[in-house]
Design a binder for these strands. Structure first.
Lengths: 232, 232
DNA sequence: ATTACATTCAATAATTTTGTTGAATGAATA
DNA sequence: TATTCATTCAACAAAATTATTGAATGTAAT
């Protein structure tokens, strides 16, 4: 193989990996899988895709080496294939935020409509938690909380928030977090809490970013292939 | 706009940016633009694309905000739109190297055929240069050397290497570098130099990575919009 | 064994991406 | 002003991607 052919194959293969990333549903799936490993049905439900369709997208991701699978009884668990996959997803996210006009316009419009939405960074949150000044709630679905959550955070799935709002402490600021900066569950939660008279803010990014940066996490159920320690 | 519609638009737009990246020619163009800004004709020549085709690919990149343009007389100079674009390209490169079987196989095959190819990292090179133990040559086309090169490196375009080999010092190790880890010009140069009896190695990555990490660079001609300092 | 259920596969039509060709535009030069 | 040259545009055919549907596979429970 001459150098030109080699180079062509290399870029061809590299573009295949990128093509696997270049679909809105698959990006949403990756963002979900950054929370942990899940069976096809759960992924389909969360992304509002028909199961067969979700399965096909997952297989595209698998063929490119971006996710790996593990059978657990009837269920096929999908998870990110490695740290680099999450890193790349973060890079793409940031790229979109900074370089693309449509995306920054979308975000600005959204943020302006709810201009009272206070956000705090992971580092700030980490600092505040050590001083016990705040009450941190995880508003993702319970399945995701069980797979792993910020240490000392309590699960208040966004759906159940209104039923359980009376359990929240009224003397502390509430910080809600969800999957990541593209996930709106924490925004909805904060909007609701503020309406109800709480002092509330959202974590700027989300669980995946928190865990990837090596901050303290915990999990309730030991999941499949019990991951004893978390990624650093 | 409800949250579901918003989310859908966001992922839609994000996937558009990713689609712009998911073509082998466009990736090769980005790798080239990481060296500096160039007119369409040069980009077309280096990537061996018909000019009209290169132009269309460049416009896809531009529409997604990945590159920007600047007219200079007859020429339209294209350049990366910002640091995040290069960061993302690096993340994708690394992702391909680590997660995709075809790519790792391709690279291993290539490396094995030339098993005597010694590589050194940017940090090692930086260290060695300060002690003047080595002679660093830039084997990219002269146009790219002029836009910016590793400080104290001398231009020996790969094409002209055989004519000018007698100018090289025989008492020092030669280190050749080119555009980046996917560029084969340095490999070819090292192979040739070793055959001719020199002690030679290639820089593991390339100029773009060196410059992005803030190491010392220089440029000969003041190019369009003379960039006084380089990206840190 | 039979049934239930999670997932995958196969086939199709609709849409999008791609490369090619030749013409059109825009800026410098004669 | 006419000419040259770099770049872009427009239009087409070929190829790839996508969503949908219903059937097929594989595992666990009855």
């Amino acid at each position: 193989m001459d150098t030109r052919t080699f180079k062509k194959s290399l870029y061809q293969e590299l573009s295949q990996v990128t093509k696997a990333l270049s679909n809105p549903h698959r990006l949403e799936i990756l963002d979900l899988l950054a929370q942990g490993s899940f069976p096809v049905a759960y992924i389909a439900e969360q992304t509002k895709l028909p199961v067969a369709n979700a399965s096909q997208h997952l297989q595209v991701l698998k063929k490119s080496g971006l996710v790996k699978t593990q059978r657990e009884g009837k269920y096929m668990y999908y998870e990110l294939a490695g740290q680099h996959v999450f890193d790349t997803w973060c890079a793409l996210r940031k790229l979109g935020f900074t370089q693309n006009e449509e995306i920054s316009k979308l975000l600005n419009d959204y943020r302006n409509r709810r201009n009272s939405l206070k956000t705090i960074s992971s580092d700030e949150l980490n600092e505040m938690m050590s001083r016990q000044e705040i009450y941190v709630i995880d508003v993702r679905p319970e399945e995701e909380y069980e797979k792993g959550h910020i240490e000392d955070a309590v699960s208040y799935p966004q759906q159940e928030l209104s039923e359980r709002i009376k359990d929240l402490p009224e003397d502390r600021e509430i910080v809600a977090y969800c999957r990541g900066p593209l996930c709106l569950m924490a925004d909805e939660a904060v909007k609701y809490l503020q309406k109800e008279g709480f002092e509330a803010a959202r974590l700027e990014d989300g669980y995946a970013d928190w865990a990837a940066s090596g901050k303290a996490v915990a999990n309730t159920k030991e999941t499949n292939e019990q991951k004893s320690t978390n990624k650093a």
